[in-house]
Design a protein around this nucleic acid. Structure first.
Lengths: 213, 213
DNA sequence: TAGATTGTTAATCGATTAACAATC
DNA sequence: TAGATTGTTAATCGATTAACAATC
C-alpha cells in the first residue's frame, strides 16, 4: 500500500467504491476493473486508477483488474470499518435522535455509546438502546470511557459552549453537524457535516441549470 | 455583482458567512472587514476577499469593510433564502423523519410539502404537519404541485428505483442522502449529502493525527 | 497625509486529465 | 502474440496564496 497522502475528495470517494462492491455478488475469483468502477460510479477512469492504486495492498492485474475480496478489505481499512471507535452524541433533538437510530454507524465502525442533552425529559428513556445524560456529565464521561468521537448535533448557538467542554477532554475528533465555525483545540480533528452548505450547493447548481435554458 | 462562476468550495462557504452575521448585533451603520471574517471563521483572508468580492452588490470600502445589512442580503440571495423552493421527501425512516422535523429548512428557503414512503403505517399520521403518501403517488404529485427538489432519504438499495421515478418527472434537483451513485437525467441536478463520506474523512484525519505522535 | 483595507494581478500549489510504457 | 488493462510520468487546469496597486 503506497502512502502518498490522500486528498479530501479522494477520501470521501472510498465509501462509494466500498458500497458498490458490497452491492454486487462476488466470490473469491471475482475481479473488477477500474473501467467498471468509472462507468457505474460516473467517475473519470483516471480518478479511479489513482484512488485505488493509492490504497491497494496488491497491484491490479493487467487485463483483469483487482480482486474484489482484497479490495473490499483495503477499502474497509481506509474507511474505518475495521477499527471501532467509541462515540458520544451531544444534542438529542430531532437530528440527534435520527442519528441515534441510524444503525449504519455501527456497520461503519462508529459505536455510539451515550448521548447528552440539557433537556431532563430525555433522561428517562433510552433511544435505540442509548441513554441520554445531562450535559454536565459529559466531561467526566468522555474521559472515563475512552471516547474518541463527539457527534455534535446541538443548535448553532450552543455549539461553541459544548466545544469548550470537549476542549478539556481527551476527545480525538468532533463530527460537527452545526453550520458554524467552532473553536477547537489544535489536537482535535473536526469534520463538518453542514446541511446548509450542502443545500447552498444544490441551490446554486439549480440556478445555473435554469439559466442554461 | 461580478459573475465569475463560483467553485463548489466557495458556494459551501457562504452559509458560514451568513450564519456568522446573523449571530452578531448590528445596525445600519455596522461594517465588517474581510479580516474579521478570516479570524472568526478561521479562513485565509485571501479566500474571504475573493468569496465576498464575487457576490457583493457593493464594493467594500477601504479601511472600513462592507456594510453588514447589504452583505446579508447578498448572501441570502446566493444561499437561496430569498427564493422558496417546494420539496418532497422520499423515505420517512429515522433520518427522513428528522429532516421533516428540522424547521431550519424553511428558514433556508426550502419548503417540504409532502413525504413519500412504502410503509402504509406512516400514511395515518402527519409528521410535523407534513403528510406521508404512498410511493406510487410520487410521480403525479411532483408534476402537479410544482416541486423543484426531491430529498432522498431511502436506504441505498432502494435509491435507484426512486430515482427512476423522479427521472420521469419535472423535478429540478435531487438532494441525495444515500451513499451511492445514482443514475439521473442530465437535466436534473444532484447534490450529495453522504454521512459515510463525511465519516471516512473524519476517520482518515483522526488516523493521521494519531500518527503525528 | 499616513495607514488600513479593499481589489486585482501574478505566482504557487495541487488536483485532474492525458499520454504512454509495462505487463499478463 | 495481440490486446486490454494497469501503473507511471507528463501536461493541463483550477484553486489557493502572495504581492502590490488603488482608495478612502
Amino acid at each position: 500500500m503506497k502512502r502518498n497522502k490522500l486528498s479530501q475528495n479522494q477520501v470521501q470517494r472510498y465509501p462509494l467504491y466500498l458500497d458498490y462492491l458490497r452491492s454486487i455478488n462476488f466470490d473469491d475469483n471475482t475481479y473488477i476493473s477500474n473501467r467498471e468502477f468509472a462507468n457505474v460510479l460516473k467517475l473519470n477512469i483516471e480518478v479511479v486508477k489513482k484512488d485505488l492504486a493509492a490504497i491497494s495492498s496488491e497491484k491490479g492485474l493487467p487485463r483483469i483488474g483487482r480482486k474484489v475480496s482484497v479490495l473490499i478489505n483495503d477499502l474497509m481499512k481506509i474507511v474505518g470499518v475495521k477499527e471501532e471507535l467509541n462515540a458520544v452524541l451531544i444534542g438529542a433533538g430531532h437530528l440527534g435522535k435520527a442519528l441515534l437510530n441510524f444503525d449504519d454507524f455501527k456497520k461503519n465502525g462508529l459505536n455510539i455509546i451515550a448521548a447528552f442533552d440539557i433537556n431532563p425529559l430525555l433522561y428517562e428513556v433510552d433511544i435505540n438502546g442509548i441513554n441520554v445524560y445531562p450535559l454536565k456529565e459529559l466531561k467526566d464521561y468522555v474521559d472515563k470511557n475512552n471516547i474518541s468521537v463527539a457527534i455534535l448535533t446541538v443548535p448553532n448557538n450552543h455549539a461553541q459552549e459544548v466545544v469548550d467542554i470537549l476542549n478539556q477532554t481527551k476527545i480525538e475528533a468532533i463530527w460537527n453537524f452545526a453550520t458554524i465555525a467552532i473553536n477547537v483545540n489544535p489536537n482535535i480533528v473536526v469534520s463538518n457535516m453542514s446541511m446548509a452548505s450542502s443545500y447552498a450547493n444544490l441551490y446554486h447548481q439549480l440556478i445555473l441549470k435554469r439559466k442554461e435554458r
